[in-house]
Simulated assay, not measured.
Amino acid sequence: MQPRQPPMPALLLSLWLLPSLALAAAVTEPADLEYTEVPRQPAAVGLPRGILQLAARAALHFFNFRAGSPSALRVLATVQEGRAWVNPQEGCEVDLVFSTEQYNPEQEGERLGKCSARVFFKNEKPRPAVNVTCARLFDKVKRQEKDYRLYKQMKQLKTPLHSISIPDSHGHIDNSLRPLWDLAFLGSSYVMWEKTTQVLHYYLVQLSSVERLKTDDDSIDFDFTVLLHEFSTQEIIPCRIHLVWYPGKPLKVNYHCQEQQSPEEASGTMEASAMAPPEFGNF
């Protein structure tokens, strides 16, 4: 990975505001950036600290779900540039460019190129609206082969699945259980995107139970419970997720979390259950 650049000083937002104008902030290295309101503009709404990283993670959660490929999951590496606008009546819109890494323990830290995204948060409501494009990740045939190998591993699992802890108490994930974890991460990506707000984001910490369901076809169909770490409240949120997956077909997800917010209060337009499109163009 590239060495981190030293943090830049706080960026002073010095735009004059009228009630009909939005507050804008441009950044080039957001890793440790702070946002400061101009004192003589008390009506302005300040940008939350870390808004660019939060927007990038929301965009990647959405990207991973839409891609529907557990062998091609991405995680955030570095936010490279971004621009954010805040309108007190409308919410926060973020345009940004960021790099990603492959979510794979055997290739940890491998850079996968850039993504660009526009993310809109409707004030502090969940489910930001996302438009994201990433550079091509894998050769399509190789990705499909990896997904099918993972699918066969899932079909051959003999471990009792009703009660399980992944990772274990030492943070270890057995290789035989890696397919379960990757699918849980894939399904949780949808949940984490839907629950993200302008001030809250989520991280998958544990898969705590799995129940495999019988199907009339060859798809992987199971209910599982995950624990999500909610930042910045530091609460652990249990979520029950139902996932249906088959390589090359749309991913189907629905879920229920404790203290779940109602869909009509969300920023975006998708419902609390979803199906990915058959093919995602960025692959």
Rank of each mutant, 00 (worst) to 15 (best):
P7T: 03
P7K: 05
P7D: 06
L11C: 10
L15A: 15
L18S: 09
L18D: 11
L21T: 12
E29K: 01
P30K: 02
L33N: 03
T36E: 13
E37C: 14
P42H: 09
A43S: 14
G46M: 02
L47G: 03
R49G: 08
G50V: 01
A58C: 07
A59D: 01
A59C: 07
A59Q: 01
L60H: 00
R66G: 00
A67I: 05
P70M: 06
A72C: 08
L73R: 05
V79Q: 00
Q80L: 07
W85T: 08
W85D: 04
G91W: 00
C92Q: 04
E101L: 06
R111L: 09
L112E: 02
L112V: 02
C115A: 07
S116E: 15
A117T: 07
K125W: 09
R127N: 06
P128L: 04
P128A: 06
V130H: 03
V132D: 05
F138Q: 14
K140Y: 15
K140W: 13
D147H: 06
Y151W: 09
M154N: 08
M154I: 06
S165R: 15
P167A: 10
D168F: 05
G171K: 02
N175V: 10
P179L: 05
P179G: 06
L180K: 04
W181K: 09
S188D: 14
Y190L: 13
Y190C: 10
V191P: 01
M192K: 10
W193T: 04
E194W: 11
K195R: 15
T196N: 06
Q198T: 13
Q206F: 10
L207F: 11
S208P: 01
R212Y: 06
K214C: 04
D216S: 13
D217L: 04
D217T: 11
D218V: 08
S219Y: 01
F224W: 01
F224Q: 02
L228M: 08
F231T: 13
S232L: 08
Q234W: 08
I236L: 12
V244F: 00
Y246K: 14
K249R: 11
V253L: 00
V253E: 00
V253S: 01
N254W: 02
H256N: 10
E264L: 07
E265T: 13
M270I: 10
M270S: 14
E271N: 12
S273K: 12
S273C: 08
A274C: 09
A276K: 00
F283R: 01
